[in-house]
């Protein structure tokens, strides 16, 4: 299997769908490298995160659209275009900017199918980059997928691996419901095996990335990589082995894979980059407490970011985020209980 970056895997999925289905269009700020610049060069940076190489040349102005800085209208346009028969993919560069277009997600796209009595479909994907670790500070670093996961009517993908981002993106574009698709901005360069061709991965199906017997570590997005490193270290040191489970989508959530693992290990640690209150970590904890109480041999541990905005100074940002040390401590606390 070919080794590719997370970024290349996104591009591959977008190209498969753009090539296959005329109804798929892409819109966003500077996706086509901006327009009207004095050099006249388009496609100059393949989008801010380099995911659209030569897309303007390949798909043209009608299907690959540079927009003004107008987040509310961009996402509203996607919802409207979806109602009118297109399958738009729109980019909101940083997830923090969802603040400007939350209405279009929450009150518009999320509601149509239900509110219109099942008479409509809203096949759109909102792609956005989230997460801390680059000292991008309080307004460019947030992990806000729990806010969106909370909204009935929206599906939410938060992948961690190149193969998953490809497979989930294919599914997201083909899905008739609106999908918000979160990519951690520190993952674009991560490499991994990516299968060729049409490799759609269903939503609501998690993946077990490490197998063990002592504890279950459920991790979201970039935290999968953090957790794997800790779990590998513990296994190497001998003594503790853990399952590492990546739900891959937070809505729908694969409850079965989590419950089955907890049934086996009796211990659950959840590693989630967002702050703790009303988080995916809290949601999974509640689900396991309700449906897997009898499996648990120890209290559930949550490793999350601090309940604070994301600080700028690198040492503060490290202290804010989950870390290998904090994950290890939580695993040991659970195992030693």
């Amino acid at each position: 299997m070919a080794i590719k970056t997370y970024r290349e895997a996104i591009t591959e999925a977008l190209m498969i769908e753009m090539d296959r289905d005329e109804r798929v269009i892409i819109m966003g700020e500077d996706v086509a490298g901006g327009a009207g610049g004095s050099s006249g060069v388009r496609d100059n940076q393949s989008g801010i995160f380099g995911t659209y190489p030569q897309f303007h040349a390949r798909y043209g102005e009608n299907r690959f659209i540079d927009t003004p800085i107008s987040e509310a209208a961009i996402v509203g346009a996607a919802a409207g275009a979806a109602l009118a028969g297109l399958r738009p993919v729109v980019e909101i560069m940083f997830a923090d900017f969802i603040g400007y277009c939350l209405d279009q997600i929450m009150n518009q796209a999320a509601k149509f199918r239900y509110m219109f009595g099942g008479t409509s479909r809203t096949p759109m994907v909102l792609r956005t980059a989230y997460g801390a670790g680059l000292s991008a500070a309080a307004q460019h670093s947030q992990a806000i997928y729990p806010i969106i996961t909370h909204i009935p009517g929206i599906k939410v993908a938060v992948p961690s691996k190149p193969a998953d981002v490809k497979g989930l993106m294919l599914t997201a574009i083909r899905d008739d419901d609106p999908v918000v698709f979160f990519d951690h901005k520190a993952l674009f360069g991560v490499q991994g095996e990516v299968p060729e061709g049409d490799t759609a991965i269903p939503f609501g199906k998690g993946m077990r990335y490490r197998e063990g017997k002592d504890a279950t570590v459920v991790a979201i997005g970039r935290m999968v990589h953090f957790s794997e490193a800790v779990v590998d270290k513990l296994a190497k040191e001998g003594g503790i082995t853990c399952d590492v489970i990546d739900p891959r989508t937070t809505s729908p959530l694969d409850e079965d894979i989590i419950l089955a693992s907890v049934q086996k290990t009796g211990r659950l640690i959840i590693v989630d980059e967002s702050p703790p209150r009303c988080s995916v970590a809290g949601d999974i904890s509640a689900m396991v407490a309700m449906k897997g109480f009898e499996f648990l041999d120890a209290p559930i541990q949550m490793v999350t970011s601090a309940h604070s905005p994301v600080p700028f100074a690198p040492n503060l940002e490290r202290a804010y985020l989950p870390s290998g040390a904090k994950i290890e401590e939580a695993i040991r606390k659970s195992v030693d209980f």
Partner: peptide
């Protein structure tokens, strides 16, 4: 200042 990131106002501000 001629640009918003990579986009010129001649495009983005009402196509000029």
């Amino acid at each position: 200042n001629g640009y918003s990131e990579q986009t010129a106002p001649a495009y983005a501000v009402g196509a000029g």
